[in-house]
Nucleic acid binder design. Structure first.
Lengths: 145, 145
DNA sequence: TTCGCAATTGAAAAAGATTTTCAGTACAGA
DNA sequence: TCTGTACTGAAAATCTTTTTCAATTGCGAA
């Protein structure tokens, strides 16, 4: 469940994309924190790794990574959202509503429920998007003081 | 699961909000379609009911209704999103990825799973956001031609 | 029914977010 | 080492959302 730079790099190459310095900076920035980051935050932090990182490039790279399935938009409480790495496949995010840390989890037990949804609605179910909100252990400790 | 104009109007009054002509137009517009609508679409359609409907008022009213729990942002495939009415309480949306119709469903069977997520991550779970995508019966019939 | 207050409104302006353009650069394969 | 094309970023443009402020209106009280 923890992605490495090399894993991501490999996925870029596997799909015929160049691994440029701006892109390396973006990948390292996303890997450096468990928090979802906005495009502007990614640019700001990424520029510490590659001084010329442009905001347009950040937008383009995030879109590419979303298409590759290695990154996902994450919603924080008030609707504003950032991006967090995601392991391709059936994974979901748990987001701390205090500090916004994100944890990835695998699977979600919705199988039978989705079958029933198909029955009652007549829809052919093709997918789902689940995000869980909560309070992380560190914020729980902080709150108990 | 089907909200009426009167139900919504009652909820406005119950929280001390005025039921103005712009707001009536917005409510009727949202009730008139099962599709999620963008603020601009709500304004465009709402102006057929109240000619002076301003976009700012649409934004303010949508925010108010979200706060009241009677409306929710809905994500369509490419991330752009609209707003759809939602019955307060434990309900989720099923969204057709062809025509973007939305159906509301109650409950979701995640109880035990969320317990397990709490165990494995250490998070105190406070809520979740689930959206199911599929193909509605009408689009299935269309596709079978 | 009338009045008054404060919530509500919408145009204009501003701010924020995202995309497009285009000339220059750089990555990777030959 | 060379070359082609993917990639880049500044500038401009577009889109989305919010703020300002004077005017309007809904509703409760009299």
């Amino acid at each position: 469940m923890t992605t490495s730079f090399e894993t991501l790099a490999q996925q870029f190459r596997a799909q015929g994309h160049k691994l440029t310095q701006p892109r390396r900076a973006i990948l390292r920035t996303l890997l450096a924190t468990p928090k979802p980051l906005s495009p502007a935050e990614i640019q700001e932090r990424g520029q510490k790794l590659y001084g010329d990182l442009g905001l347009v490039t950040v937008y383009r790279t995030l879109e590419l990574m979303e298409t590759m399935g290695v990154l996902r938009a994450v919603h924080v409480a008030d609707g504003c959202h950032g991006y967090a790495l995601a392991t391709p496949g059936h994974t979901h995010h748990v987001v701390c509503e205090r500090c916004h840390d994100v944890v990835e989890i695998v699977g979600c037990d919705l199988g039978h429920f989705l079958d029933r949804v198909a029955e009652t609605t007549g829809y052919t179910i093709t997918g789902h998007w689940l995000e869980i909100s909560g309070i992380c252990p560190a914020c729980q400790r902080q709150q108990a003081r």
